Simulated scan of single mutants.
Amino acid sequence: MACRNTELLRATLAHIEANPEQWWQGDHRGPGRRGEILDFAARAVVLAGGVWAFGPVQHGPDRALNFLIEESGDSAGDVELVRGVRVVDVRARAKRVLGLDEETARDLFHEGIENVEELRELVDALCASASEEVM
């Protein structure tokens, strides 16, 4: 497991713990009408300053419009043109800003995480692993 930005990882978890009603791991932008209910990946990119390219979309044919406006650090391979806007998928941005490898991103962003305690255990393990790599 690898995470290079433990500060953002902890800040994301802290936001979720303080506002559990705004967390839902089932989709990047959950069932809230204003787009305030986010999964871990989406919350991390919002805390890192990411800007949504489109309004909140929960379900239906436009569900895939949970994209962020491209920013300078995004990989060219992650950028696509959607409705005339250069965008990046939430997951790709979250991997970049958190400094995650593919396996760690898959574990952390998994929709099967059902409670904050399970999420906290995973974040704690990532932070412990990151501090061991520094030593």
Rank of each mutant, 00 (worst) to 15 (best):
N5E: 00
E7H: 14
A11P: 06
A11Y: 07
L13E: 10
A14K: 04
A14P: 01
H15R: 06
H15C: 05
I16S: 03
E17D: 02
A18W: 03
N19V: 03
N19G: 09
E21T: 04
E21C: 00
Q25P: 08
D27R: 15
G32N: 00
R34Y: 11
G35D: 00
E36Y: 13
I37N: 02
L38A: 13
D39I: 09
F40V: 06
A41I: 04
A42C: 09
A44V: 04
L47R: 02
L47Q: 04
A48S: 10
A48I: 03
G49P: 03
G50Q: 02
V51N: 04
V51F: 13
W52S: 05
F54W: 06
F54R: 00
G55Q: 09
G55K: 05
P56A: 10
P56F: 10
V57S: 11
V57W: 12
Q58L: 14
H59K: 15
G60W: 02
P61S: 13
P61N: 13
R63E: 13
L65S: 09
L65N: 04
F67T: 08
L68F: 08
L68E: 07
L68V: 04
I69H: 08
I69W: 02
E70K: 06
G73V: 03
S75W: 04
A76H: 01
A76P: 01
G77T: 05
D78Y: 02
V79S: 02
V82P: 08
V82C: 08
V85K: 13
V85Q: 14
R86H: 14
V87I: 00
V87G: 05
D89N: 08
V90W: 01
A92E: 01
R93H: 10
A94H: 01
G99I: 03
L100K: 08
D101H: 13
T104R: 08
A105N: 10
A105R: 09
R106N: 12
L108V: 00
F109Y: 08
H110V: 08
E111K: 15
E111M: 15
E111G: 15
I113H: 11
I113A: 13
E114Y: 12
V116E: 03
E117G: 11
L119Q: 02
E121H: 07
D124K: 01
D124I: 04
D124F: 00
D124M: 09
D124T: 04
C127I: 02
A128V: 03
A128M: 05
A128S: 07
A130Y: 03
E132C: 13
E133R: 15
E133Q: 11
E133L: 14
V134T: 13
V134C: 13
V134G: 13
M135T: 15
M135K: 14
M135H: 15
